[in-house]
Write a protein that binds this DNA or RNA. Sequence first.
RNA 1: GCCGGCGUGGCGAAAUGGUAAACGCACCAGACUUAAAAUCUGUUGAGGUAAUUCUCUUGUCGGUUCGAGUCCGACCGCCGGCACCA
Length: 911
Amino acid sequence: MSSDRRKPFPFDVFEPRWQQRWDSEKTFRTPGPGDADFDASKPKYFVLDMFPYPSGAGLHVGHPEGYTATDIIARAKRMQGHNVLHPMGWDAFGLPAEQYAIKTGQHPRVTTEANIENFRRQLKAIGFSYDWDREVNTTDPGYVRWTQWIFLQLYHSYFCEETKKARPVSDLEAKGWTRGQIDAVRLAFVHEAPVNWSPDLGTVLANEEIEEWKAKGHTVERRPLRQWMLRITSYAERLIDELEPLDWPEGIKLLQKNWIGKSEGAEVDFDVQGQKVTVFTTRPDTLFGATYMVLAPEHSLVAQITTPEQKAAVESYVTACASKSDMDRGDLNKDKSGVFTGAYAINPVNQEKIPVWIADYVMMGYGTGAIMAVPAHDERDFEFAQKFSLPIKAVVQKTVARPVPALSEQEPLPDPLPSSPPPKLQANPSPPANQVSSNQGSANEVSASQCSENKAGTGLATAFCEQGFAVNSGFLDGLPTAEAKAKMIDWLEANQLGKRRIQFKLRDWLFSRQRYWGEPFPIIWENGNHAAIPDSELPLLQPELEDFKPTGDPRGPLIKATDWIAYSPTAQRETNTMPQWAGSCWYYLRYCDPKNSDRFISKEAEAYWLGGSGKPGAVDLYVGGTEHAVLHLLYARFWHKVLFDLGHLTTTEPFQKLVNQGLILGEDGQKMSKSVGNVVNPDDVISEYGADSLRLYEMFMGPLEQVKPWSMKGVEGVSRFLGRVWRSAFEENQAGAWSLHPKLSDAPCTDKALRRVVHQTIKKVTEDIGELSFNTAISQMMVLTNALTASATVPLECLHALLLCLNPFAPHLTEEINARLQENFPTLPSGQLCSQTWPQWEESALVVDEMEIVIQVNGKLRDKLTFPSAATDEEIKTAAMASARVQEFVGTGTIVKLISVPKKLVNIVVK
RNA sequence: GCCGGCGUGGCGAAAUGGUAAACGCACCAGACUUAAAAUCUGUUGAGGUAAUUCUCUUGUCGGUUCGAGUCCGACCGCCGGCACCA
């Protein structure tokens, strides 16, 4: 590791010294409400990092990227007079720790502690200004207690549909609801359903987690199990709507919106052999074009409606689907498959008899698990109809076929039974391919081919899925799609054949895991009923187990702790544990009041740190990777809203402003990975170039949000810059000792140009930090440093301004220079830079005596002229016209126009 | 397939609709040195020219404008997310 490279400044000596001092003096301790030294008159600023999962590999260079950004903000905000909450903690439960523990035979607590130790050491070696007194660890009993308490808040609550808020279930008890009725609406509830079970991990996974673990080589299959669920779907609407006022990247907002997946449409009831089958559709306007129906293979009515002739085929298809993995089923490249049930459904709008099929392209988990197929206007239905030669009937066209009478709201809705006789029933379930059952002569009917780019006569080439105008649709004919939808829904509701329905893709959150290293549920089972244990029994910790390997038993490894399970002679503990998300859902709250043993957060701390900004979001700035766009960020918003509804919080959203740092790639432009061997270890960078160089380089690489490759040469570059800053204060003698630079002078700066650069720098750095544009702030400080290097004297006030600006970026170097200067110049402000006041720029120092005006002819640069800054527009224009170069390019042309931009340019338009 | 984001020197990048390439890397040259490293100073988008100059240049094509890297439209390429959601 050691290199013979001479260090440009003695960071190896002073960096650890400053770190120790900050640690022992608790320089960055942040008093809060209730502390004697808390100053409530200052505004608060809560700047948060996504806390790390303390893996065995230690920090990688991606961690310090976001952490340096927030540290710069935190340090600058402190200097600008804020009480800054800037904490760090550990997301320490989770599968990897347990997998590792199983492999090595060590208790996960032991390995987790060691990993945390290492992470903490690494973070301190980068000089982050965290208040380590507020450190939070999700596995601490004092933390687990409140995670379990919040779970019980969910358990004891339901979602009130009228107020759209969580309310205590005691409200329902007061109304006389039965136990069963209440259990059916709790926000934390037990549900038996097919879940994502991973046999080799021995646990179930949330939908959102499947990809991650599959990518790591684990298998996931569907299996019906009894599980704890959280009713996040109740909040779907609010989770979309309340995204609006947040300062999040639009892309992330959209990602969440799409994940929640709101669709507006209708439920329509079909009659299938006397059974009511409800379908969901977003295109009720195409009901007249439904030519068959499809049920998901898992649909509960499949067995009932299947005719004896089709029984064998249907059963074998259902069995085949059940054994298919989600991956196979989701594969879009495969052909559509399905089988006819032998049954027919009656289309309620025209009494047409349509065949009922089952097919795996219809999912049981979305909508009602049944669809009306409109092959003319849905690509998937179209593909299926083509394959199985089902009829295709166009009911929407691009343009209006005839003048439409204005839609009158008073217009009576037609009778459910059309006055015209129903069309002939199709007895044959497999009519000829590509049949288009329209074109029967009515003037306003169009052939399907008119709606597609296909040549007439051969049927449709593709489905027409856009909006248009209804045709072949009885009382909808001529209406644009939006109006046709509304009218059809009105008709369905009026005739009690269906209703308006909003459908979300979001599923309820599968919240239980069958693992050891997680929070046990504070729940007991007695006589088949679940019940909460009293708050006084929290935290409920996992029992000590010798062997915590998964058993393959879906109840999880805790079943081995027989003493622990036995809660009372008649009651047993729940043996499932919570997922890793539980702890990370609320850690930002705990930082505000980390040691409180009476509440998860005191009212006072909550009001100050989370409610103080008057905005919907509690945390002022949250920086982290994109990978949490739909997991952690959605879950935390959900919990926050529940706690808000129940009166425990005063804000509706956890994170006001969110910034995603971009991935740092390896030097080769590839994603960093052990197998490729392009991983950069921050420890190595620190020992070679120092912590300040690491910090500065990561900020100088490019815009924070951008993906960018690592470059050791780049680190060297910023290290050279820091060396120049150092040498603007000190010079080295023959023996290698640093002494005060003779160029330094505590006389006021008389160099106007230098002074202007100083104030430009203060302005730019101040503004750029506010916009998280750290790379450009650093550029400007390089410009100033270059000016100081070139200057014959280095005025102390100029250097001090630079040190203040640079302090949040390179705290060790700047504090060291400042401390040494303080010894020689007693006029300098006392104390560390980090506790001094942020510098102010003077507008008067920015003004220039002379300005350079660009002279363009027809938009092309032809000359540059210098004027006193007081020159008038007329003077400039006259001088511009007089310019020999301008004359040359104007030539014999006529001047059409003269455009003058004050202090910038003159453009002469010549024809 | 759908939804986002991004395309600027050899490289990382900068640029309220107004001098494209600031700052850094790399390269080259000079100063210091016996020499090297370090440091300091300077050169470097491409093409033409004797030239202080000219022409071209922000993925491609078109548009708006006195003026476009920036705004609008179409296309091409790369990256990320979702994926039979009816």
